[in-house]
Design a protein around this nucleic acid. Structure first.
Lengths: 222, 222
DNA sequence: CTCACTTTCAAACAAACGTTTTAAACTGTC
DNA sequence: GACAGTTTAAAACGTTTGTTTGAAAGTGAG
């Protein structure tokens, strides 16, 4: 039985090789050219495999795209665990949420094409965006961010207002993913590495906590 | 000579008709499908003209796209004048800037395809984005927003920090353009009309002024 | 009405595209 | 080595695409 175990594993690895090559190459080409602009021949050429391999390993080009995009947008396991971790104060909690969200959006250790594909998907949605929102963004917002904001503001604001505050925070974070092409044109030599993410997160946290504190003060005064 | 003037005008009007039809139809189709996904036949069918008309009136599909996108991103004349208008206080000025920027991004009186095309262009840049940034976004940021922030903060922050504050404000505004597909999935029945723009602008102004006031206070205390 | 220019149109063109087909090569089991 | 199943490859297929072509129709001036 142990020998059979080994045998079953071997073809899996071989299959993974061509298939993995296609997935990676496809990710890059789709990120650069979008779905329509990317050709199966460009992808297979970059992968170093034969053009028929796409239809052997995937039903068609569209299925390849969906798989690649879903993978790019999928949550890193660490993300959900990290945002679920308890932290001491609501301030600290918001800080943590913002840091984690930015890490999810901008992780420099992930291939750049995943980040770019995610940005593309947000602008030109396919069904993958449904998954991205349902699995990652909506839980982040509804289960963690808004409740934290409710704590921070001590019940001073309506659900609608908390929603707007939430969008202000998410908008600041998403700016660095979605407006990257704009930023690069505004700020020469713009790049994001680990320390930049921390700096950005620190700024957004400071700015947002300051806003919340002041808004809460004003609300309590009236 | 006057008669020749009239004659010259007449064919211009006729030419504008087919050409305008193509531009409008192209705008819609490019907004829906992107450059590669949009076919010349889909565009001409929607425009109700012959497929060869595209090459008669425009050099090729790419030139049609560029013209359409540049038009979609072009500044409304009122926008530049409005943001150049003097206002009383820096607070009022920031309010005005935010309102105008949002109106530029989200104007419900403009065809929806222009807004969607602008969002697409930001995610998948062509040369049109260079123009958009250079003509609209960079002046807005560098000539109006940052100087206003400098006034509001009374010289407490470095250029870098003012840049971050600027990005926080712009990120909040761009969120409602760029993350529209996300918002629509988070918030059922989401729509933006004139009063929504005002409400959003009011929120972003309040949030941002509160943040700036508090951050400035903290900076002065240390 | 003639003429020159403009605009429109249908057909054609050449290339590209995603996909299919078929056979060869590969792999693993008995 | 035979066999069955998997994987790879090149060629072919049918369709689509952007563009070109050549002629007809339209327009306006003299």
């Amino acid at each position: 039985m142990v020998i059979r175990e080994n045998k079953a594993a071997a073809p899996e690895i071989a299959e993974e090789n061509t298939r993995a090559k296609i997935l990676n190459a496809a990710g890059e080409v789709f990120a650069e050219q979008g779905f329509e602009g990317a050709t199966v021949r460009a992808i297979t050429e970059r992968a170093g495999v034969n053009v028929a391999a796409v239809n052997y390993h995937f039903r068609d080009k569209a299925e390849l795209y969906t798989r690649v995009v879903v993978d790019a947008c999928s949550v890193r396991a660490a993300f959900r665990e990290a945002i679920a971790e308890g932290t001491d104060s609501p301030e600290e909690r918001l800080r943590s949420l913002i840091h984690r969200f930015l890490e999810y959006l901008l992780d420099p250790n992930r291939p750049g094409w995943k980040r770019r594909l995610m940005a593309r998907e947000m602008a030109n949605p396919t069904t993958a965006l449904d998954e991205l929102v349902k699995n990652n963004i909506q839980p982040f917002r509804d289960e963690f961010l808004i409740p934290t904001l409710r704590q921070l503001t001590g019940g001073c604001f309506s659900r609608r207002q908390l929603g707007y505050i939430g969008s202000s925070i998410m908008g600041q974070c998403l700016y660095f993913l979605q407006s990257r092409p704009i930023i690069e044109r505004l700020v020469p030599d713009f790049k994001i590495d680990k320390s930049d993410i921390t700096e950005i997160a620190d700024h957004i946290t400071r700015f947002s906590l300051a806003a919340i504190a002041e808004l809460t003060r004003q609300a309590r005064r009236s």
